[in-house]
Amino acid sequence: MAVTRIIAFAFVLAVCVGINAAPNGRILEGNDVATGELPWVVSVRVDNAHVAVGNIIEASHILTSGHGLSALRSIAIAASSVTVRAGSINQYAGGQIVKVQSITIHPSFGNFLHDIAIITLQQPLTFSSKIAAIALATDEVNDALVEETEVSLAGWGLQLSGATPYKLQVATFKVLSSHECEYQAGYGYDSVLCLEHGVNRGIATGDEGAGVVVNNTLVGVASFYFGGGGTKFPDVSSRVSYYSSWIASTIAAQSEA
């Protein structure tokens, strides 16, 4: 197993260089999301450009991936450069733009492990039919995520054509067991939830942070993909239940600040 992880680690480093160098990924090739269908999904923006998907977990808190907001490992970029568009399936228009108070990346983030972050907003969102929080997975929900469990994931990532969709896209994936994920990609960690998909499907540039959802419950946060996306390898996400204590303590600390 150690040899497998060393090989996989070297491969992922090469992959990540490609991801950061240019937007060359493949997108879900999913379906358009209807207005209000996924009210917890937001566009996370840096200098007013979409960089990641976020998930509303409280009126003032968004759960997303860490690497798109990282200046150096767990040190975040300036919160003043980040905003969130909530309440719109159009990444370019509609809804409300909210400024960010702070960004907390998991302290152990590195090499795409523990790739999770909490955004605290300057002002709480006003919930409506288009803006709402999603429930977080409990241990019981996590235990039910056996291999072949169907999950959904939505984002604004690149499509096969190389175009960026203006409308939120959603598709269905299947959970891959930790054992099988270790075998295929060297990522059978307890903190990871791997997703299986067909060739030319899967997450891509712009989908990082997207919620992995079962029965309107957030079970994962999309982290990275292999190659340009859409390969035979699984997509990797952070398992939400693994971070439940960290999420709760981080929100409590922000509330007291």
Rank of each mutant, 00 (worst) to 15 (best):
residue 188 G to M: 12
residue 158 L to C: 06
residue 200 N to E: 14
residue 204 A to G: 15
residue 216 N to G: 01
residue 170 V to G: 06
residue 228 G to V: 05
residue 144 A to E: 10
residue 159 Q to E: 15
residue 165 P to S: 03
residue 188 G to A: 12
residue 155 G to D: 11
residue 210 A to I: 01
residue 227 G to V: 00
residue 155 G to P: 09
residue 158 L to P: 01
residue 148 E to T: 15
residue 160 L to P: 00
residue 231 T to P: 00
residue 167 K to M: 13
residue 202 G to Q: 05
residue 215 N to M: 02
residue 218 L to H: 09
residue 151 V to A: 12
residue 175 V to R: 02
residue 156 W to G: 11
residue 200 N to R: 14
residue 153 L to V: 14
residue 178 S to Q: 15
residue 192 V to H: 15
residue 167 K to P: 02
residue 176 L to R: 01
residue 225 Y to L: 03
residue 173 F to D: 06
residue 168 L to H: 07
residue 151 V to C: 11
residue 152 S to H: 07
residue 210 A to S: 15
residue 189 Y to T: 07
residue 162 G to E: 06
residue 198 G to S: 11
residue 209 G to N: 00
residue 194 C to W: 01
residue 160 L to H: 09
residue 200 N to D: 15
residue 163 A to W: 06
residue 144 A to S: 15
residue 150 E to C: 05
residue 229 G to W: 07
residue 167 K to C: 05
residue 195 L to N: 09
residue 154 A to H: 09
residue 164 T to R: 13
residue 158 L to A: 10
residue 233 F to I: 01
residue 235 D to N: 14
residue 149 T to P: 08
residue 210 A to H: 00
residue 166 Y to S: 15
residue 237 S to T: 15
residue 219 V to C: 08
residue 207 D to A: 04
residue 182 E to A: 14
residue 161 S to M: 00
residue 160 L to I: 13
residue 156 W to S: 11
residue 153 L to H: 12
residue 151 V to W: 08
residue 235 D to H: 08
residue 177 S to D: 04
residue 234 P to I: 10
residue 184 Q to E: 13
residue 220 G to N: 05
residue 193 L to P: 08
residue 202 G to R: 02
residue 219 V to R: 05
residue 235 D to R: 09
residue 168 L to I: 12
residue 155 G to C: 10
residue 214 V to D: 01
residue 224 F to T: 06
residue 196 E to K: 12
residue 224 F to M: 03
residue 230 G to I: 01
residue 177 S to V: 08
residue 171 A to F: 07
residue 163 A to T: 10
residue 210 A to E: 02
residue 232 K to A: 15
residue 215 N to R: 14
residue 177 S to M: 02
residue 235 D to I: 05
residue 162 G to C: 04
residue 216 N to H: 11
residue 150 E to L: 10
residue 176 L to Y: 02
residue 213 V to K: 03
residue 162 G to S: 04
residue 215 N to S: 11
residue 171 A to Q: 13
residue 203 I to T: 07
residue 158 L to E: 07
residue 226 F to Q: 07
residue 171 A to E: 14
residue 185 A to M: 04
